[in-house]
């Protein structure tokens, strides 16, 4: 079965890749197979994980309120009235439930995660004042002692020294204004300026001209960095998928899989060439 699977996997992969040449029957078959398999797969997943687990098992159980589960089934069934134009308006009740549920969850969740927490993380003091308390000084002293001990220790393990140094630097950056503190402040300022300028770029109540234009220009620069990074991440994500496919094609080109890759590739090229010749003949016939 694995050999059959290898041939199917190679065939479907090459069908999809054939789109790089041009839209062709192989790609169209692959595309339609993909749609059919995907929908079939998710229908089965939902049938067992939703219908059986969440509805059928509850209905056939012993709970006294088990029939309550029929309410969402009924609400869902209302969606199917879309197929009957006369009573299609009943589907609005189901849509209203879905929209109401989504909006009801969205308000508190987005308010907390996307507004309050993000605002808290942005609205921080731009300059850190060193903590001159005896506690902070003591913590730094202890961290320095631990670092010195790690350096002088008999084992002299690099990892331990690095960890002790890291703890010392962190502790010192709290009790004194060090390079690390300055770096943190710089980061806070960059983030604050970035958030403010990007928000200003989307603020259309005043015209962006004169001195205020500078803010929106800086906002654009931050957005460009965001788009560039998103682009880079997307391309690399796609390329890692491509590596996977190429490696599979290489694996399946071995003898133990009956040279699936080269055989299917040659057959596809032959069929595409034949189709090209046939279509060219047709085009010339039409032109004549």
């Amino acid at each position: 079965m694995e050999i059959v699977g290898a041939w199917i996997a190679v065939g479907l992969t090459l069908f999809m890749f054939s789109f790089l040449y041009k839209d062709n029957p192989f790609y169209k078959v692959g595309e339609n197979l993909y749609v059919g398999i995907t929908i079939g797969y998710f229908v089965i997943q939902l049938w067992y994980k939703t219908w059986i687990d969440k509805v059928w098992d509850v209905l056939t159980g012993q709970a006294h309120d088990r029939f309550v589960i029929l309410i969402p089934v009924l609400i869902g069934a209302l969606l199917l009235t879309r197929f009957v134009p006369k009573i299609a308006w009943m589907s609005r009740w189901a849509f209203a439930f879905v929209i109401g549920y989504g909006a009801g969850l969205a308000i508190p969740a987005t308010l907390t995660t996307s507004v309050v927490i993000q605002a808290q993380a942005t609205a921080k003091p731009l300059v850190t004042m060193p903590d001159r308390s005896p506690g902070a000084a003591k913590a730094t002293e202890n961290a320095k002692a631990a670092y010195d001990k790690a350096k002088e220790g008999a084992a002299k393990e690099d990892e331990k020294i690095r960890a002790a140094r890291y703890r010392y630097e962190q502790s010192r950056s709290v009790s004194e204004y060090t390079f690390l503190t300055a770096y943190r402040d710089f980061t806070t300022i960059v983030i604050f300026v970035g958030v403010f300028c990007v928000l200003f770029y989307f603020f259309f109540s005043i015209e962006h001209r004169g001195p205020v234009r500078a803010f929106s220009r800086v906002g654009i620069l931050f957005l460009m960095i965001y788009f560039g990074a998103s682009y880079g991440n997307t391309v690399m994500g796609r390329l890692s998928l491509l590596y996977g496919r190429v490696l599979d094609l290489k694996d399946y080109s071995r003898q133990m899989y009956g040279f699936a890759t080269p055989v299917i590739l040659v057959l596809m090229i032959a069929v595409l060439a034949a189709l090209h010749v046939k279509n060219k003949g047709k085009d010339e016939g039409h032109a004549a």
Binding site: A103, Q118, G194, L199, F202, Y226
Partner: peptide, 27 residues
């Protein structure tokens, strides 16, 4: 990824969040 991207992403998140809340209020 940690600094300018965070800044831009945070500002966009504010916008999206305020938009979602406004839409929810309209509903």
């Amino acid at each position: 990824l940690g600094v300018p991207l965070t800044a831009a992403k945070r500002a966009l998140m504010f916008g999206v969040a305020l938009g979602s809340i406004a839409t929810a209020l309209r509903i």
